[in-house]
Amino acid sequence: MVERDAGTTEGKAGITRRRFTLGVLVASLLGAAGSVLTLLKVLSPEKQGGGYVTTIRPGDRLVYARGGETGVTVRASSMKVGDAVLVYPSSKASNPANLVQLIRLKETDLKPPTNIGLTDQGFVAYSAICTHLGCTVSWVENQKSPDASYTECFCHNSIFDPARGAKVMGGPAPIPLAQIGVKVTGEGALIFTSDFTGPIGPQV
């Protein structure tokens, strides 16, 4: 006998066929959704401890990060007041968290919150990774009045004042660029003397 109106036919256990089928359907859909969640978990790799973790150690030599002299040691004598360059610690260029902007300012222009103890002969260095969305910052040089030069991220125009601890002067960056200690060696090269003073890269 074929039951035509399966939905209203009571089974022995007191549940209708329609309800049973629906239950099976819902259970299988939940199972399928569960397996999709597992797959999504598999598809998002675990944190590698990557992101912006610097490998700079005190004593690392500063080398140019770009241009024709990439990899060449930065010499203190090659930079005059108002100059800035992008540098890496020597032989540690593969890590973007190691990218640093080295600036030479007039020693008397450096004001708190700059950590003066981490500067030498007007050389001051900050992380070059913008704290907004991770672009590399650039140096906007003002030829007429060097103390009006500043660091800017060209992605969304965050502006930092390197004479005052890379304080945010404008734009969407939430925190200053982290400072890092540098000093001029006896041979006229530059080396790092400390770790970064704060977090580097976007604060998300």
């Binding site: 598809l43 998002s44 790799p45 944190k47 992101g51």
Partner: peptide, 15 residues
């Protein structure tokens, strides 16, 4: 966001 970005970019960009 942390999990979503790793799903979308297959890890921590640049990977």
């Amino acid at each position: 966001g942390d999990w979503m970005s790793r799903l979308l970019f297959a890890g921590e960009f640049p990977s």
